[in-house]
Structure formats: structure tokens, C-alpha cells
Simulated assay, not measured.
Amino acid sequence: MAEGRVLYHAYIDEAGDEGLGKLKVQGVSGGQSQFFAIGAFLVSAESDAQLARWRDDLVKPFPQRKGRDLHFRDLKHEQKVAVCHALAEKPFAACVVLSYKPTIVDSSKYKIFKQPQHLYNYLVRFTLERITAAVRKRAEREGHEASLMVTFSRRQGTDYDVMREYLELIRDGKEKLYSVGKIDWSVFDPVNIRVENHAVRAGLQLSDVITSATYAAFEPGLYGHCESGYCDAIRRKYIRQNGVALNCGLTLIPRLTQNPMPEVQRAFAASFSGK
């Protein structure tokens, strides 16, 4: 970490799965998710010191809750709504990238994503492009240089040394998969990656909230319905480019104009295209 730089923290979690074998079918239990999401919870170092207290504030209204560990999936609907509204009052920024996996399943062009960790790494790349740009812009506004520390939620089957090597390939211009954006290496170095268990870091638990809330707006349940209310509650927290969150704080792969996902999800995503 360069001396004299202002430090920012990004906590990264995922929702859904990378599986491309048998995607879920409406009305049938089992199967792999239609969407896979990577989300980043972005804060300043000053706010980072407060994250355990933020997490405790969120669960305090639930008197029957045991322990401090926060898992979005374990909350009841009303609790999820309350958590999202309360979290939206805190000073953080959100960035979530979602892949619509049916566009990959039968594609020879994207068969590389059927290899373990490749889709995960690719979505992380998109996420880092957006959050490093946001950190740099804030640093420029405030007249300082910045560094970004990235903490991943430990997930089974992920090799984080391979993740670092992948990011170094991108940095060195050796990655072959095209991306419109660029990771801003002036604020991020792949050595500044940590991997922690969900229960250890409050920031990872808060990342779980924003990632899962966004995922719920796109991934249909057993009977085909999505829940957009959680995502709506944190709508103003997604990072923006020129005032627009779509393709920045909320990014769909493929892009919305080329994405064949169902009309309900398309309309909700389109609602993030205005200022």
C-alpha cells in the first residue's frame, strides 16, 4: 500500500451459482440458478471501522435472533425489507454484476465459462473495473490519491491465487477475453486482496445483503416470480456514471440491449437507466 494514500475497502460476495449443467425450470424444484451475481460493498476507511456496528444496528430490531452473523437468506421477508431500508441510510456504494446464464449454456463462443471459476473471475473483472473507476473519481474530487483493498468472501472451490494471476494477466495486457472497461491499476494492486470467512467480516455480511437483494430482483423463484423490493430499497446506493446506474452500479451481462432475459426483469433493469 503506497504511503500517504487514502484507503478504500471493497467487500465482494456472490449470489446464485456458476453451474451451467441444468438450469432451473419454473414449477420444478432443483436445478442451477438462471443468474449468477457478483456484488461489491464499497466504503471509505473511516466507514470501514464502523461496519460491525452497522451490522449490529441492522439485526438489533430482531429480538429472537441468535448471534451477530447476518445471512440475508436466513431472514424473513419483512426482515429483509427492514435491513435493506436501514442499510440504505449508511454511507456506502454498491456495485453488482449479473450474468444471465442461459446465454452461455449453448454458446460455443462462451464455452470457456463452463470451466471452473472462469465465470466467477470474469464477473469479478467487471466489478473491479467499475469500483476502481468510482474510487479514482472520488479521490480526484477530494484531491488525494487512493488505494483499494478488496476482501473476498471465501467460497468453496475457488483458488484465489489463480484469481490474482488472472488479474495480473489483465494488468499486463495478456488476457484475451475482451472487455470495454479497464481496471484502474492506479488505485488497485492484485496484492491487495484478502480472503475471509463470511462470519469474520461484517463488511462481507453487508455485501451479502446488497448482492442478494439485487439477485432477488432478477432470479425467479419456484413459481417464476422475482422480488424487486429489496433492490428498490437500496436503489440510490448503486454507483453511477454520468448519473446513470445501469451498466455501472448495476450491470447485466449481456448488456440490456442484447439480453434475452424475461420482460419483467428487463423492465426493472431499464428503470436504472435514468438519472
Rank of each mutant, 00 (worst) to 15 (best):
K80L: 12
V180W: 13
G173F: 02
L169S: 09
D56F: 01
T158A: 10
P116E: 04
H198T: 11
L7I: 04
S108W: 11
V195A: 11
R201K: 15
C84L: 04
S33E: 04
N121S: 10
K22I: 09
V25P: 02
L252N: 12
A93N: 07
I112Q: 12
R73W: 10
D159Q: 02
L42I: 13
D172M: 07
R73C: 12
D13C: 12
A2H: 03
F188W: 09
K109I: 14
F152D: 00
R65D: 04
A49N: 08
R130T: 06
R73D: 11
Y11H: 10
N121V: 00
R53F: 03
S33A: 10
N259F: 03
V105E: 02
S228L: 05
S273G: 15
L42F: 09
K176F: 05
L7W: 02
Y160Q: 05
V124C: 08
E140P: 00
D184F: 15
P61G: 10
G229T: 13
F188Q: 01
R125A: 06
S44W: 03
R53V: 03
D48V: 01
L177P: 00
Q26Y: 05
E129L: 04
K109L: 14
K137L: 10
E14A: 07
E168P: 00
G173C: 04
R255N: 15
A88C: 11
Y110T: 07
